[in-house]
Design a binder for these strands. Structure first.
Lengths: 155, 155
DNA sequence: ATAAAGCATACCAAGTTGGTATTCTTTAAT
DNA sequence: ATTAAAGAATACCAACTTGGTATGCTTTAT
């Protein structure tokens, strides 16, 4: 069904929560409450975000998480790749070694093109646009002009 | 990992094979040979393509399949939807009834925007561009101008 | 009448995903 | 130094999806 995983979605949700107060440390439990996710699931999400370097963890008492960098510098592509690995619509796209039927196929270019554009789109959306109803138009413009990132924070 | 199913990929491959000789009826066995797919799998693909109205089946002896309409009128979106249903990156996108945590979320707009653009991209590529190395540029142009479909046949 | 073809259904193995539990390590506060 | 609050790491499991295969039925040109 060509959909992203729930964990990825949760990741975006938590990150956008963190983006509301970039300075303060938020604990796992509080984040779970704010987002409506279960505690174990939240933990799992936080681990992935930490591993990907998108959040900074402070261990020990009074610890917690905060964004590792400005929300405007965290794109949906970053998040998707953190949870699902490299973006590759088809196997051909991912590695050189192609699929089982590489010879007969030769569709790699087409899918590669789609894939490249998809990545561009995801890379251009950062952590504030997710709530922005005008995002489609701005994205279309962006793709056309090669504009810089669209921020997810300063709405 | 945000990838399309193999069957979808096979579908595109078979369709582009049919597009080479739009007039002639091709049998399942021949298509299996041409594409390197197994016969049962090919059958499965043909059923999906038939159900979606992308190919026309002629039953009985001397039967076979051919494209149901011009290759330039069959887009990747058509194929993807034939195999994977409506394109919806997140659950929110698909139906109105949202996900479990709709209240806390409010990310629907952002994902909806990405989703919409993805659909536009897929809709603009038809059955010939798949082998076209310049497809990325043409797509970017297309998104910007609202141009008509890019054909997959007349390369 | 017959054989060539598509149609329909059912089934199964394997991988992926989401979710949960348990235990260990770090560190601020006292 | 002790303690308790927090994150880190590991392991596990159930359920769903996917890809792949097999079998028998129906249509139709010859």
């Amino acid at each position: 069904m060509l959909k992203i995983g729930k964990l990825t979605d949760y990741g975006v949700l938590i990150l956008s929560t963190l983006a509301e107060q970039p300075a303060v440390l938020r604990q796992t439990e509080g984040l779970a409450e704010s987002t409506g996710l279960s505690l174990p699931t939240t933990r799992k999400v936080m681990k992935a975000l930490t591993d990907a370097g998108l959040v900074q963890a402070q261990r020990g008492a009074k610890g917690g998480y905060r964004l590792a960098r400005a929300a405007s510098m965290i794109s949906l592509r970053d998040v998707v790749e953190a949870f699902e690995g490299p973006i590759a619509l088809t196997e051909c796209t991912q590695d050189e070694h192609g699929c089982d039927i590489t010879e007969q196929c030769s569709l790699a270019d087409g899918w590669g093109g789609i894939n490249q554009l998809l990545m561009q789109m995801l890379a251009r959306v950062t952590l504030a646009d997710v709530k922005d109803p005008t995002i489609v138009d701005r994205l279309t413009q962006g793709l056309m002009m090669g504009s810089p990132r669209i921020s997810l924070v300063n709405l």
